[in-house]
């Protein structure tokens, strides 16, 4: 199935190139081309993942290369959804660098015939890990929206109307994207923790063991809970929400990176 992976990487890289061209030159044609390429890349990516799963006879998120690839897939999925909903032309130039990077890392770190721990041969894997990655993707999108917000706010407050002013979306638009990706990410992350707890109960007889990844994800979840709470109660939007969501994103990366204790295999 490796050819599908190569085709995917090529299409994502081309899409990234065209998004950047569209961003710098402000030409719609490049943005539209980039979107077509993302679509095609995503299709091949899906074919690749399905093929890999069938070939290895497991859901392909059991080692690092597999998960990087799946993470990239989740981000692309949320990106396409966000584009269909909001049509912000600049999104690709900010989201696709990570997607391409993840794909390349996945290809570099590739290992053949790895054995998966028997623990992962469980139906919980499908649900637990896929919602986890969707949560990560949602939070990543929120992080990007927060960056766009802060940059555009700086332009608008400094009253010097330059490069970014002309290219970034309206503040309210960034804020809306922040809000919606927060809600999606938060629901997904809550589901991750709940399904994780049930799986843990089955596998080890305990719902919660305070292993490093569990603890880190609880911290991340709390940060986003705070955001959701204050967002709904009215006070925290815009700049404050943007700062907190950046903090949440950092915490999320730590959560993703902590692979010790019970989560040692990944």
């Amino acid at each position: 199935m490796n050819w599908a992976l190569i085709v995917t990487i090529v299409f994502y890289a081309l899409a990234l190139l065209h998004s950047c061209l569209g961003f710098f030159q402000k030409r719609q044609i490049f943005v539209s081309l980039a979107l077509c390429m993302v679509g095609v890349g995503f299709l091949f990516h899906t074919v690749y993942l399905v093929g890999l799963g069938l070939e290895r006879r497991h859901f392909p998120i059991t080692d690092l290369p597999e998960s990087l690839s799946f993470f990239a897939w989740s981000i692309t999925l949320t990106f396409i959804a966000a584009h269909i909903r909001y049509r912000y032309n600049v999104l690709g130039a900010f989201v696709l660098p990570l997607v391409s990077l993840l794909m390349i890392l996945s290809e570099v770190a590739w290992e053949e015939n790895h054995a998966i721990p028997p623990l992962l041969r469980s139906r919980w894997l499908y649900f637990h890990v896929s919602v986890a990655f969707l949560a990560y993707a949602g939070f990543f999108l929120m992080f990007i929206a927060a960056l766009l917000y802060l940059m555009q706010e700086k332009e608008l407050k400094s009253k010097r109307f330059r490069f970014l002013y002309f290219r970034l979306p309206a503040l309210q638009a960034c804020d809306e994207l922040m809000r919606n990706s927060l809600f999606v990410g938060f629901v997904m992350m809550s589901l991750t923790i709940v399904t994780g707890a049930f799986w843990a109960q089955q596998a080890w007889g305990r719902f919660w063991s305070w292993d490093p990844k569990e603890t880190a994800s609880l911290v991340t979840w709390s940060i986003y809970l705070l955001l959701v709470h204050y967002r709904l109660s009215g006070g925290w939007r815009a700049r404050r929400a943007a700062y907190v969501s950046i903090a949440g994103f950092v915490s999320m990366i730590i959560t993703f990176g902590v692979n010790a204790g019970l989560h040692a295999y990944l």
């Binding site: 402000k26 030409r27 719609q28 044609i29 608008l156 002309f166 309206a170 503040l171 309210q172």
Partner: peptide, 25 residues
């Protein structure tokens, strides 16, 4: 359609509208 030559307003009143739109969408 392919260049942004006609996209930018060059009167003061329309600049005000453009600014409002950049903030409020």
């Amino acid at each position: 359609t392919e260049t942004s030559i006609g996209e930018y307003s060059v009167s003061v009143s329309s600049a005000a509208v453009e600014l409002a739109r950049k903030v409020l969408g």
